[in-house]
Structure formats: structure tokens, C-alpha cells
Design a protein around this nucleic acid. Sequence first.
DNA 1: CGGTTTCTTGTAACCGGTTACAAGATGGAT
DNA 2: ATCCATCTTGTAACCGGTTACAAGAAACCG
Lengths: 336, 336
Amino acid sequence: MNGKAIGQATIRDVAREAGASVASVSRVFNRLPNVRPELKERVEAAARKLNYVPHAGARNLSLARTGVIGVVLPDLHGEFFSEILRGMEREAAMRGRHLLLSNMHMGLGDGVEALRNMRGRVDGLIVMAPHIDPDLLFAHLPASIPAILLNGPENRQGRPELRIDNAAGARTMVEHLVATGRRAIVHIAGSHGNIEAAERARGYREAMVAAGLAPVILPGNFDEESGHLAVQRLQIQQMDVDAIFAANDMMAIGALVALRDMGVDVPGQIAVAGFDNIPLARLISPGLTTMAVDIADLGARAINRLSAVIDGENVPQTELRYPSLIVRNSTTQTTA
Amino acid sequence: MNGKAIGQATIRDVAREAGASVASVSRVFNRLPNVRPELKERVEAAARKLNYVPHAGARNLSLARTGVIGVVLPDLHGEFFSEILRGMEREAAMRGRHLLLSNMHMGLGDGVEALRNMRGRVDGLIVMAPHIDPDLLFAHLPASIPAILLNGPENRQGRPELRIDNAAGARTMVEHLVATGRRAIVHIAGSHGNIEAAERARGYREAMVAAGLAPVILPGNFDEESGHLAVQRLQIQQMDVDAIFAANDMMAIGALVALRDMGVDVPGQIAVAGFDNIPLARLISPGLTTMAVDIADLGARAINRLSAVIDGENVPQTELRYPSLIVRNSTTQTTA
DNA sequence: CGGTTTCTTGTAACCGGTTACAAGATGGAT
DNA sequence: ATCCATCTTGTAACCGGTTACAAGAAACCG
């Protein structure tokens, strides 16, 4: 009746069973070359017999490396969320790292708390918090923990940033609409206080002014319903509008549905454009013209850069990714 | 010039700074009652001064609890993936746990390996692997690590399972189609070797036979394109079909798009139905009739049950969730 | 005022790995 | 046979927390 029947075998159990030292067992499992084949054999047999699996937590503690990357995301809408995670996961798996998920649905206070108790759990953090001032966030975070900021406002902490050039994307879209003959272009903005929403609105405004047109911005909050609502409100005002540019695809789709319900022809009477190129944009009818952000690639890139930081390499502070214009039937009728 | 300038403060640093013992510091941080207020004060001041954050990894090691749940998922399609994760995350956060992500895009061998080195990293596992025999999978996993199987085949290891009743759902859908006057109902199946696909096909076949109709099953693999393809192939054969029931929504949408392209009226000529009720099903036109699975709830439930297992409670071996029928315009024209 | 109980605090062992260092074994050169 | 270089192996300290146990202080009792 040995006292330790229950529970997993440890490295010391294996060492005893193999008649070797823990150091040798450790060497075998880490594939160090300096172990005599005969001993290696014995250790492996013992490990097999005891069904030994190394304890990652213990390993992490003594190595001071966990191989885990913390991903802090806001409460995201479906497609964007899954795409960015897919990209991150693939890249992380390739580098033998894992992802620890943490939503940031709370306020700043809790957020900082949440980040802090990531210490000892992760090697680094990817933080996406478009509605929170990163300076405040990082101020309470030990400078020694690597972190990169995704699609956030600029930070003065010297943390690396990875961002989509939202303003440039919005300008491109306005230029496309103007080039296809639209003049009265209305923008449905994203959530108030969200930096991406603000940047897209800025790009819209700049491009409109540059084209000698008057910007009109309606409030929205990135979800389908707010796109729907914006259009309904628009009709009440009976303004003459020939294009709607929503700050994201979900709102554009909401707008599309609302227009369909009221029997407005898209793109005949009104052109509709979005931003993000979620998979759905291609499937809806008419196909939605939008700015394509390679979301999975953005996620992969984030992991990539964070890995570099963790490995002590120097990375440039800010990196921008440019979205590209995808023209579909919601802005130009194909002459099929 | 103290030698340890770099790196985080440890509990011993705080103890020294506060003129207390590590035990007391630990007590303060764990809110144990038996600490004199004056000492508590001193410890907190010292911690603040050194900007001390407890090291979760070390804590986990000595407690033998990580507060992390490992989530092993196959390479899932967008909406399902994000929904199930959202549900899991919310539930996990409520219980103060985190999620460690791990995709299972590899074969069985690597999969087992991947599961094994979760030891010491997680308190339990949620495994979703509809294409892998769970008996083989769990056979190589220490029996002591809690795990629950999601939407998989039955296992003989006595592991708890959580499953959608796919066969019952498929039967319900066939009954709906029959009740609305359809007779020549074709099923587009999901990926070969996938248990969910097999169960849905089984339900379809059973219900068809029960209704005295002849089942016809076309191959597919759960993605939009395979739905598209199945319809194209169907037309070539010029069979007369009045309903298509795809094993999931993405294929149904592919079918819908293909039918639209060939000018077939849905639901006038052919009814189309899916399975899953992804958000997109509601947005596409015509709205897609489908079986609704509350995916987020499924995820939450999985976390819930796993938590119970981790806490040593007894949970029933198998739990089924029933999907519910959502009727939209793709099977019945509203007389608006 | 001595004895007992209760509360506070500290010491040191432990969780399960890694690894610096030392010691023993082996083999080659002279 | 002797000496030195190289290779293999083991001992014990360490990573940063938790906690059993013991001891000292304070409070309470008759």
C-alpha cells in the first residue's frame, strides 16, 4: 500500500523507477545529447510504465517561460472575433505557443486588474481595447511584460502597436463612391468613444471635404440594428441621399435590409458600402462593397510581432495594415 | 546597486520590505482573517511600493489548481466557433476561470500529444472532435484529468458527454417539410467521417422512411461551396426535387445562392432548409428555415459541467440538448 | 497570579520541474 | 602506467508561491 497511489507520477517517481537521477530524466525529456543510450532507454521505459507526463506548470516556473500568450479582446461581433482568433491560433500553434483568452467586457478598473493577474500565466499580451485609453491601461502594467496593442489609440508608453489604417480605408471608399458618380454620401458612424469608429469617420470627413462635398454623419454603434435604424431615421428626414457608407459591414447590412424593406433599389437609387469584408458581405444580396481587412492575417501578424518582442528582438513601434477596396453590386450594378 | 534590480518583485521582497514573513504576506493577499490590521497595512504599503503582483504560475503549482480550462476545438467555421467560445468565455469568466485555446487541426497522434502536454496547464478539458474516436483519444489521457466531450461520438471511457440531438433535429426538419407539402426531399450531408454529419443523415433517413418517402443523400462537407456544388450536380441529373435539406446552414446558403443563380424560385419551386441557425441565416434572403442550436448556451453548459467535475461533483454521463425549429421564408412563403 | 485558551506570526518544507557544479568513469596520448 | 581531456551522472539549490506546525503574545479564567 504505497501512500501515493493516486495522482500523477512526477519526475522523481520516474527517476526512482529507472534507478537514475531526476537530472537524467529531465535530460532525456528535453532531448539533451549527453545521455548514454542505455540510460535513456531505461528512463523511457520507466516513464512509459508510470504513464508519466511532465507537469507544464512546474516547468514554466523554473524556466520563467510559459509558452502562452494572453489575448485580451473586447466583446466582439461574430465574424471578426472568430477570424482574428483563427489567425492568431494558427500562428501561435506554429510557434508552439498557446493562447489564453480573456474578454474585456468590463470597465478600465477591472481591466487593469485582469491584466495584472496574467502575470506568471503568460509570456506576453495582445491587447485590443479600442474604447480604452492605452496609456492608463499600460501605466498599471509592469513594464517588463511584453505587450502589443491592436487597433487601439496611440500610446505614449512606447508599446508596439499594430493597426489598420482606418482613415485611409475610409478615404478610399469615399473616393470610390465619388468616382462612381455619388455625391450625397452619408456616413453611419461606429460606437461613440471607439477609436476605430473615430478614425473611419475622420477619413470619411477628410475625403468628402477634399472632394468639395458636405459630410453628413449619423450615429451608430457597429451592430446591425443601428444600421437599420439610421436608415429609417434618414427616410423620415426625406433628405436626398445617393450613397450610404457605414463604418462596418454589419451596419451596412442593417441598412441594406432596411432599404430592401422600404423598396429602395440598391444600387439604383442608393449605393451602400461597408468596412471589414466579413464573409457575410459576399453572401448577402446584393453583394456588399466594402474595405477588406485581412483579419486572420492581422491576428497572425500580432502573434508574430509579440513573439519577436518576447524573444527580445527589437520591433518598430507602429505598424499599419492597409485595407483594400472590394467592389460588389451594392455600389455598382454589373451589366450581367 | 542591488543585484536584483531587474525583474518583478517576489513575495519575499515584499516580506523583507514590510519587515514581515512571507506567510503573512501570503495571508494578506489571500484575505485570510488572522492578520493584525497594522501588519496588513504595512504589507499592503510594501506591496504597493514595490509594485508587487503575485505570480500566478507559482501559486498554481503549490495549489495544484490553475483556474484554466483547456478548450480543444476542430478547425471550425466562423459563426459556430465564435458563438461557442463566447458562451464558454462568459461562463468561465463568471467562475473566475480562463480559457486556454487549442485547435485540433492535426491527426489523432498529434492530438493525443497536444492533450497530454496540457497537464499542469489546465484543470480540465473540453474536447470537441467530431471526427475522432474518443475512446482512442481518452485512452492515452490520464484518467485523473477531468474532461468532457462535446458533440462527439459516444465514449466508453465513462467521460461525461454533452451533445446536440442531431438525429432528432433532422427528423423534426423533415417532418416540417413533409407537413408543408414537400415530398421529394434531398439531403446534402456533412463531411464524411464526422459524427454530427452522420447523425443528421440518420435522422433524415429515418424520418423519410417513416413518412413513406425515398431518402436521397448527396455528399457535402459543411462548407458553402459544397452546398453550391451539390445543387449544380442535382440540376444536371434533372431529378424533380421540391426540397433541399442541408446538414448545416452554410451548405444551405450555398444551395440558396446556386438556386438563385439558376433562377429557381425559393420556396416556390424548391424549399431549402439548414441546420444550426447561424446569425447569417436570418439575414440572407429569403430567410433560411433551420434548426436552432443555442450554440453559446451549449458552450456555457459545457463549462458549467466541467466545473462541476473539477469540483468533484458527480455529473450524469450524457446530456442532450434539443434544437428547435425556426421557420423562415425559404420553406414557406409568408402571405405578406 | 498561574494556567489555559486564542490569536498572531514566523520557519521551513513542499509543489514538480531545471540546471550549476562536482565527482566519477572512460579513453587517448605519452 | 600516468596524466589529462571528455563524457556521463548525481546532488542540491532554485523558480515563487502556500501552509503545517510551533512558538510567542495576549486575553481570559478562577
